[in-house]
Design a protein around this nucleic acid. Sequence first.
DNA 1: TAGTGGTCTAGACCACATG
DNA 2: ATGTGGTCTAGACCACTAT
Lengths: 264, 264
Amino acid sequence: MTADERDIPAGTTAGGPGQADANAFSAPRRAPLYQQTYALITRGLQHGEWQPGDMIPSEQQLAGRFSVSAGTVRKAIDRLVAEHLLVRRQGKGTFVASHLEQRSRFRFLRMRDRKDRIPEFQSRVLTCRKTRAKAEVAQFLGLAAGAGLVHVRRLLEFDGTPTVLDDLWLPASHFRDLSLDQLKQWRGPLYGLFESAFGVQMIEACERVRAVRADATVAGLLAVSRGSPVLRVDRVTETFDGEKVEFRRGYYLTDDYHYLSRLA
Amino acid sequence: MTADERDIPAGTTAGGPGQADANAFSAPRRAPLYQQTYALITRGLQHGEWQPGDMIPSEQQLAGRFSVSAGTVRKAIDRLVAEHLLVRRQGKGTFVASHLEQRSRFRFLRMRDRKDRIPEFQSRVLTCRKTRAKAEVAQFLGLAAGAGLVHVRRLLEFDGTPTVLDDLWLPASHFRDLSLDQLKQWRGPLYGLFESAFGVQMIEACERVRAVRADATVAGLLAVSRGSPVLRVDRVTETFDGEKVEFRRGYYLTDDYHYLSRLA
DNA sequence: TAGTGGTCTAGACCACATG
DNA sequence: ATGTGGTCTAGACCACTAT
């Protein structure tokens, strides 16, 4: 983008502030400027104009580029910050959120210990294989049955004991080159790897939680007897525009840990 | 409160806008005006100056009362709206949120059907008894063991099938006069009853979710076999200032329904 | 017509980070 | 000293609701 381009048709004139549109014809309900500004910044994030960890232009600069006031830019950024897409740092600037940063490391982890603290845990990746989507997984990902996927299985040990078994299915369209070696070498959150190595930013997720009996596989890997009650958590993760880029099924032991949910 | 009282010491003078404090001495870190304003409005809600469903004074009026600008009041109200304590209605005013209104009826209900819709359900209150707090419940409520409680048990039928068994423990200090008759006669959400009949506004809650085996009682009431996996949801509900006013333990069948959690 | 919240602007000063 | 975000003000006009 060049500095002088105007992404938003100037809705104000020199006549004064707050003058939205001087047209005599009633325009077809234009969205408020701060929402348009929100959309433009989001598009910049989506198109990779600013990468995770990058600083975006200052509020003044964006105001100039979009031909709106600083307050309007600020309101747009407020929302993006609330949605964890941006992070403000006073005196420094506004930055694109990254799963590699400490502050967002446990954003999607709901498990807590008896005192509601995040447990210490270790991840052991067991397998990584190319597969094709069965009907159920395909439906969760909004793909056709048979679509190419990468399947990852890993075990999380909480404070030393195996507690979570995760199965991940990732669209081959984005994750074709993901390998077991790569996963085993990686230190840190998977979403950090996906972000840095595959350019996929996990923005939001939705989890459906059930209580089920452990089958032979789950029971074996979690070291409990078959039929034991375990929490089954189905997660669908999306990137920009609601594009589904992960389906994850987790089996959680909840004797010493629990799934925490805040209602407001 | 009288119209001319000033709850916030005027931090600005006639000298111009944005002049927070002319004192040469560095004051002991005063909170921003919009936070003070937030606290003052919250106090009004807590003290019952404005009841659920009431309209609070207009932004202009509050700005006058607190000697701050309309924008500052607006920012304070923005937060209270985000926290679901207030509701804005354009052209009408700003109102105190109420559990009796349609919009907040299912705020704390996380169960969904296969299409993520809120199920149709019916509540059947089974028992309502005065008891004393056992150690576990006392701890959840931050009370001493043996404190007076009211215990309520109810069954929820989702689309006609018993799916949720709830046990509620409520501090007798607030709910001494709650009766089975009252509960059976009540149509609508329990929190609406608690709000209108006992003046207790449920503001936020925290749930800890586990998978457990159904014991004889649970299995009997939910019509499953003993040992079946069920979701156990422990909820602690708070009113203003984090005062705990409900501990609720729910047992959920998750064959046809699930617990939905959005991560962001 | 009047009152309310919703949007938008322009400009001030403060607090923080960096060179 | 400069640039960034954070706070605060004053005032304009728009959109909606009610009378």
